[in-house]
Nucleic acid binder design. Sequence first.
DNA 1: ATGTATATTTCATTGTATTGAAGTAGTCTG
DNA 2: CAGACTACTTCAATACAATGAAATATACAT
Lengths: 145, 145
Amino acid sequence: MDGAELGWELSTAVVLFHEAVARRLGLNAADHKALGIITRNGPLPAGALAAELRLGASAITALVDRLERAGYVRRVTDPGDRRRVLVCADTSGAPDLGAIFADLGREMSALMTKYDERELAAIGDYVVNTIAVLKAQTARLSESE
Amino acid sequence: MDGAELGWELSTAVVLFHEAVARRLGLNAADHKALGIITRNGPLPAGALAAELRLGASAITALVDRLERAGYVRRVTDPGDRRRVLVCADTSGAPDLGAIFADLGREMSALMTKYDERELAAIGDYVVNTIAVLKAQTARLSESE
DNA sequence: ATGTATATTTCATTGTATTGAAGTAGTCTG
DNA sequence: CAGACTACTTCAATACAATGAAATATACAT
């Protein structure tokens, strides 16, 4: 199996895993992606989320409503500017998420014990660079729209 | 940066790249996924696609309509069973797709030249096993639905 | 041949997310 | 303090894809 095909398989597996996680959380793909951004980029104002998702303001209100109703997110009015609403990942709803990823983490850890120092370094380097390439290509595809 | 975080970054990058490709092709995420299955699994009957996507028969008709209208796919009646409609990826629409992935392929190839034999073997093994783990976890998440 | 089963399509309906306009509340400038 | 601006929400209209039932065409069994 050559590199391109392997890459294709990996990306398919990643996408399907994401979808499975979303289904398990009771979210659609778009909302799951939004939750990822919120979880990752810490509390962020609704407007920033709109910009990130290239979505209108009212769509964000509806989206945050859904996530809040499902218990994955909280609204907190920004103390600095009370017009703003900060969207925070609600970690009390996160046991769910923890259980989902615990197995994955365990299996990946087990996998990594197979490799020696130098191999681990190569793998790490490969992953870091692959991320960079994907980001660059994503940017290239998105720029001329 | 630890393994879990790196894995999270990689999967995010993969998902965003997929979305960017879909946007560029003028497809939504679901249709892009379907096109992937069709491209990969060769010509396949509409019913098989329905099973794969866990979608109703009529939804498939609409989906194939969209892909056909966009020029990515053709309908061919199965000569063996003329009730069946085989859905074929239309490679004449594929220059698009080739151009999109050419850059990615080139950059990834360039990246791989950095590693020696043993490192390449480790990386390949890592990718293969990661795919296996992701598939297993996806199955686990999907089973008890 | 006839009848039953299968594969896909068509159509009307439903569900769900997005848009755009108007409204509300808060901030900033002069 | 007044006026202009910004951030979000609400609401009605719209777009889109999925569903389920009925229709069409083909295959298979007796």
